[in-house]
Design a protein around this nucleic acid. Structure first.
Length: 847
RNA sequence: GCCGCGGUGGUGGAACGGUAGACACGGCGGACUCAAAAUCCGCUGCCGGAAACGGUGUGAGGGUUCGAAUCCCUCCCGCGGUACCA
């Protein structure tokens, strides 16, 4: 008995060295043979044998801040398992890595400590690199990128210019979200419940000139193309809600006194006859003009001033009673001809629709509440078809077919749906309205008044105006500065020698744009750069993208369901429209992993003190055990609480498998081991050997189906566990059957515990697991010659008897009726019916 | 409010409409040991029973079915998203 204890550290170091030395996971591009030849690949690294399907597997790139945490490990353990499986099922797998290395936390850290963000970020990147290697993640390191490096952001700037050129990047003054703590503007997507997503401060609205990307141009396609991708339904739903498409009509309401038309957007043109007043947002530019000269002028002015100073949070409070002020003017309801009063009220939002609404209090809850508060008329124009009364204390909002229009002139008696169509058509004919679609989605605000980000490649010239930096002058390099403290403008503005530049057009004195880009810009295209990461002549070669895009499997946290995933989709569509790319969607399949919670079931956080740092665990139990445990915690898309004990269970499984491999290698005749050239299962196993061979095939089938299906890796690991347990239970099975079963277990655990899998596979076969094709289950071994027939009486199990597989129904029925447990429960009752499920059960129905 | 996802032993979780609780953790018992750890073996939903076995059981209540954790209806609870979006 030699040393047979499972020493994870030794085994892991051994295989990590092999993979690093042989660059096992590097995959050259095929489209441009020369692009990869700068670094010669040893023969073992070649994957260019017979034509293989490509598979592009990407995990969301990490934001490098401090040390990696256990959630990163989960993310990459899932992706790595998938990458390994795809490699072994005949795919050329691209599995790269990079860092989303610009961003606020590094800059805030710099403000606190004075350490340059680049220094802190690069330290963190080094920690991530060490971690990825010690975890044994199969990464193609030849394609590594970091978004803060000029070699990368040069092309981020290039993409900005392409968008600018096509009018998709533009500068505009508007009311924007301003975080007073971080001293920068934020995208709509970064404001959560009226607060800054990062620091939690209440966000203010400020009127500022900022850079936007015209993502709203793509609203329809971003919505429609969700149907073409294999994403979790809840993520698609979140995106649909965020885009928020509403179908309705635009209708003109004319103010006769001033001779101005005011269009409104409504999703209920069918209720137009019930519009009894008209409301404008306090920010509407015409509000003060309308009120001017009326007796309400002063009240309106006060109301508007008050509304503008309120925070988004206060204004959004639903419980607050509705307020507003009469403008002293009227507009004409275009269908009734009535003059209806104009009001200003803060429940109307300037950002949505036209900033003005027609109010139909009878059929809209908000209008109802407002009408009640100010005693405005409420006219019912939709009623139940059967004439039943509607409650008088709330709005009747139905548009179902059991309701009909009333008090609506020629349109009486129509269903709301039909009324919608007819009224819109009539408005169109009369030239006072038309069908219209509105989106909730706003353009993406991309400029930030912060230092640690990608400079916007624009120059302001007193003579030429706004001038894009010529492409050949890229990158606009982010200069080093000393003072990071934001002062309401970018800290870059203080870097005078950088800011002052020559106008690319006239050569005169000009100033650089000092805002930087939102870091979500950097991460909206990195998966494109991976494909052609070392290209220094272009962001990518379109031919290379044709080889790899789209991403076949994307893996990441659901917290990016809207922001990153929407922005990346927009980028791909915009770039495709420019002819730079052939696909419409970046990520064909998405998997969202759940969070690992602390042992207390709460989200891990330093303040709670429930953080599980991965490194000590890996030193103690090995990366394989931690990876296996994390994937065994439950369905990987669900949140799960950490449990140290369960981790030792995963370690025990690997240890037991290792012992089997070590004993096999020690006990077997060396010539036999050497002769095990083929991995074929024993030809005609018998007894326990047959049981083991069957179990191994069953496990192959189960593990494979989890990879093909829902990534239920906990079930896959359970199947391997059962196989290992059987190997312990059946020590006397013949040697070749055991060898086959042990090799199979090692082969199947390899995607989850690659070092241990490789080690045991080598012990059992002398070969390398990752160079072997994924095992295929032998159909003949998936069925036994007999099975346990479940015998039920009235649906309750009363006995179990052995029956031959494939036996005819009559025989199964006969066996069941003869089973003692069944006879005991028949008890002289009449057999009404016998249900037979072949190879499974018989149910005897008695009365 | 609206949209989405869930609710199964002490715990994490299994289960094409066909044996509910695989596998793991925890617990109990045993082997090995001077002893402990490690390792190995066995038992473990609940109630009754020494056992065989019987009853009961998947948030609640109905329904469909020979048979329901699974399908349908009503409701309760939890989680996530979103919300004066006209």
């Amino acid at each position: 008995m030699s040393e047979r204890r499972y020493q994870a550290r030794e085994i892991e170091a051994k295989w990590q060295a092999v993979w690093a030395q042989e660059r096992t996971w590097e995959v050259p591009n095929r489209a441009v043979p020369d692009s990869a030849s700068a670094r010669p690949h040893p023969p073992a690294a070649r994957h260019d044998g017979p034509r293989r399907d490509k598979s592009y597997v990407v995990e969301m790139l990490p934001y490098p801040s401090g040390e990696p945490h256990i959630g990163h490990l989960k993310n990459y353990a899932i992706g790595d398992a998938i990458a390994h499986f795809r490699r072994r099922t005949g795919h050329r797998v691209l599995h790269p890595m990079g860092y989303d290395s610009f961003g606020l936390p590094a800059e805030n850290n710099a403000i606190k400590t004075g350490v340059h963000p680049r220094v802190a970020t690069e330290q963190s990147i080094a920690a991530f690199q060490r971690a990825f290697r010690s975890w044994g993640i199969s990464i193609d390191w030849s394609r590594e990128i970091a978004s803060h490096e000029p070699e990368y952001y040069r092309w981020t700037q290039w993409i900005f210019l392409q968008l600018y050129r096509r009018g998709l990047a533009y500068r505009k003054e508007s009311a924007v979200n301003w975080c007073p703590n971080d001293q920068t503007v934020l995208a709509n997507e970064q404001v959560v419940d009226g607060r800054c997503e990062r620091c939690g401060h209440v966000v203010e609205l400020r009127q500022l000139e900022q850079w936007f990307f015209r993502i709203t141009d793509y609203a329809d396609r971003l919505l429609d193309d969700l149907d073409t991708i294999d994403w979790p339904e809840h993520v698609k739903t979140m995106q649909r809600n965020w885009i928020g498409r509403s179908v309705g009509a635009e209708v003109n309401f004319r103010c006769q006194e001033l001779g101005i038309d005011y269009p409104v957007f409504t999703t209920r043109p069918d209720t137009l006859f019930g519009a009894t007043f008209f409301v404008m947002a306090p920010e509407h530019p015409d509000v003060l003009r309308l009120a001017a000269g009326t007796e309400n002028e002063r009240a309106v002015r006060d109301y508007v001033n008050h509304a503008l100073t309120e925070s988004a949070e206060e204004r959004g409070d639903l419980d607050k009673t509705k307020t507003g002020v009469f403008l002293g003017r009227t507009v004409t309801n275009p269908v009734t001809g009535e003059e209806i009063p104009m009001w200003v009220a803060d429940y109307v939002l300037m950002e949505y629709g036209t900033g003005a609404i027609m109010a139909v209090p009878a059929h809209d809850e908000r209008d109802f509440a407002f009408a009640r508060a100010y005693d405005l008329p409420i006219r019912q124009v939709v009623a139940p078809r059967d004439g039943s009364p509607v409650p008088s204390d709330e709005a009747y909002v139905t548009k179902a077919d059991d309701a009909i229009l009333v008090n609506s002139g020629d349109f009486n008696g129509l269903t709301p749906k039909a009324g919608f169509e007819r009224i819109v058509h009539w408005l169109d004919m009369e030239g006072i309205g038309h069908p219209s679609v509105n989106f909730r989605l706003r353009d993406w605000l991309v400029s930030r008044q912060r230092y640690w980000g990608c400079p916007i490649p624009i120059v302001y010239c007193p003579a030429c105006g706004m001038v894009p930096v010529p492409e050949e002058q890229l990158p606009v390099v982010l200069p080093d500065i000393q003072e990071y403290q934001p002062k309401g403008r970018s800290p870059l503005a203080a870097a005078e020698e950088w800011v002052n530049t020559a106008c690319p057009e006239c050569g005169g004195a000009a100033r650089r744009e000092t805002d930087t880009m939102d870091t979500f810009v950097d991460s909206s295209w990195y998966f494109l750069r991976y494909c052609d990461a070392r290209n220094d002549a272009a962001a990518w070669d379109p031919a290379v993208l044709r080889e790899w895009m789209s991403v076949d499997q994307y893996i990441g946290g659901v917290e990016h369901a809207i922001l990153h995933l929407l922005y990346a989709r927009f980028f791909v569509k915009a770039l495709a429209d420019m002819g730079l790319l052939d696909v419409q969607e970046p990520f064909n399949a998405l998997f969202t992993q759940g969070m690992i919670l602390g042992p207390d079931g709460q989200k891990m956080s330093k303040s709670r003190g429930n953080v599980i740092p991965p490194t000590p665990l890996i030193e103690r139990f090995g990366a394989d055990a931690v990876r296996t445990y994390i994937l065994n915690m439950g369905p990987p898309d669900q949140d799960a609480a950490w449990n140290d004990n369960a981790l030792t269970g995963a370690h025990r499984l690997l240890s037991r498998l290792y012992t089997l491999g070590a004993e096999l290698a020690a006990d077997s005749d060396p010539s036999l081991a050497a002769a095990a050239e083929t991995l074929a299962q024993p030809v005609e196993p018998t007894g326990d050997g047959l049981t083991l061979v069957r179990k191994a095939n069953w496990a192959i089938d189960r593990v494979t189906s989890e990879f093909v299906g829902r990534f239920g890796f906990h079930n896959a690991i359970a199947a391997v566990t059962e196989l290992v347990n059987d190997l312990y239970r059946l020590p006397r099975a013949d040697a070749e059957a055991r060898r086959f079963a042990i090799a199979t277990a090692a082969s199947l655990i390899f995607p989850f515990a690659p070092h241990l899998g490789a080690e045991v596979f080598e012990l059992a076969t002398g070969r390398r697991a990752w160079e072997e094709p994924w095992p295929a289950a032998d159909p003949a071994m998936l069925v036994a010659e007999s099975f346990e027939l479940v015998c039920q009486v009235n649906g309750r199990v009363r006995d179990r008897v052995q029956a031959p597989s494939g036996a005819p129904r009559e025989e199964l029925e006969r066996l069941a009726l003869a089973a003692p447990g069944v006879i005991a429960h028949l008890d002289g009752q009449e057999v009404v019916k016998v249900v037979v499920v072949p190879d499974k059960l018989v149910n005897v129905v008695v009365r």
